[in-house]
Write a protein that binds this DNA or RNA. Structure first.
Lengths: 231, 231
DNA sequence: CTTGTTCGTTAGAAGTTATAACTAGCAAGA
DNA sequence: TCTTGCTAGTTATAACTTCTAACGAACAAG
């Protein structure tokens, strides 16, 4: 029934378009007042139809939000993939990430923001998330000179040993421990700056987050100090 | 009227105790279902009194939440101050921070989590926040060897120059640019790991966040590589 | 033309925050 | 001691919210 050989029926297209408009309005509301301020009734009002009609298109408010989260993940994954496809290195991915985040802070927070305690993301979302990781790992690979970790301190060596044994998150990606470590730090450090910046914790500090971001990114992508080890 | 020379009136003590119990229940609810799941009615029900009674103690739901945020900030500031007072260095502060965060993730998110777009924190809260910064700056000072930043790349030098000119956030703290930079990275990097860990982004990755945290912390507190500069 | 699915409606249940108006009870002054 | 006044709690109500149920109308296809 649903799909009919060739293309989509007019009904399906109508349905898809209404769903899209609902999500559109939802994004506007989220941008204006956060995910917690999203109101199905308000959306229905804006669209000129009355309340319960939306339940033909989304099973519940949480369902709609989950859909938006999914789209946000997809958008980030696409951004990373596109950047990588056009030849960006790890630094390029870093800039693409920041642009994506600043473009819509609440979308960023839908992905990396405060979780609600009970919630568990559906499997397809975690799949997209590991796709993002894969893009990072790809980009983190080339920068690697072997550069024994021991020179960077005992903890550094311990971490790389740990990563060598626990690489579930890298799926079957063939990245060496130093690349795993680079991708991981790329992720956590840049997220640290971005999330604080987007949450406004830098405002009033009289400090340009871009400078800090670039510096961290540069230190992240610099090849290790060729083991001019210390006594 | 209110304060009466010596101590507090029985009425005031009662009032303070009820306020405290309300906050207690509020924390339980937040731990269980996040700040968005906090319900004044539910609290009133638990306390055996009916709805609107709570409005004698808090002007609004937002007012209660703001109070909780304030307490969370205070708790973090105290934790940092206490650690510093008992002789902890920057690494010690890092561990104290992680312990504090893991002790109550939702409390952490009340401080560093997703902000609601319109909201602006009252002045006294930002004052507490800069107190936290001051504790960080104190601890970040001693580790400093001069170690010219130029050796660490052009962006590193640019950042320290930027910090030298924009030190509003350090109030009139007499820390040198390298210490400012250390405190800043301490903050952003550890927050990056912590917030991802608490949000559950490491679960299923089969990776111990503590190892990653310790490594970052160790790299953060290691004195700079004594300028064995590269060609 | 008839039949079945789908869309949107209104009505209503159960919940929320918050205000208004009222009633007990406590505390302190004349 | 009596009276006055403040405060803590109550119920009632308004204006929301999500979401279910039942119904009507429009559409697509046999």
């Amino acid at each position: 029934m649903a799909t009919k050989g060739k293309g989509t029926t007019p009904r399906e297209r109508y349905r898809a378009q209404v769903r899209a408009e609902i999500k559109e309005r939802a994004w506007e509301q989220i941008a204006a007042s956060g995910a917690s301020g999203l109101s199905l009734n308000a959306i229905a009002r804006q669209m000129g139809m009355s309340g319960p009609a939306l339940y033909r298109y989304f099973a519940s408010r949480d369902d709609l939000i989950t859909e938006l989260v999914r789209d946000a993940y997809r958008s980030l994954a696409d951004t990373m993939r596109d950047a990588a496809a056009s030849g960006a290195d790890l630094a390029g991915l870093g800039h693409a990430l920041r642009t994506w985040a600043l473009d819509d802070p609440q979308r960023y927070f839908l992905v990396y923001g405060t979780p609600v305690p009970g919630y568990h993301a559906p499997d397809d979302i975690t799949t997209i998330a590991s796709g993002i990781m894969a893009a990072l790992l790809d980009a983190a690979r080339p920068a690697g000179a072997p550069a024994d970790a021991a020179a960077d301190g005992p903890d550094e060596a311990r971490l790389e040993a740990h990563l060598a044994e626990h690489r579930e998150w890298a799926a079957d990606h063939p990245a060496a421990p130093p690349a795993l470590r680079r991708a991981l730090s790329f992720w956590t450090r840049l997220h640290g700056i971005l999330s604080l910046e987007l949450a406004g914790h830098f405002t009033g500090m009289g400090l340009d987050p871009a400078v800090l971001y670039d510096t961290e990114l540069q230190q992240l992508t610099r090849r290790p100090a060729a083991s001019t080890s210390r006594p």
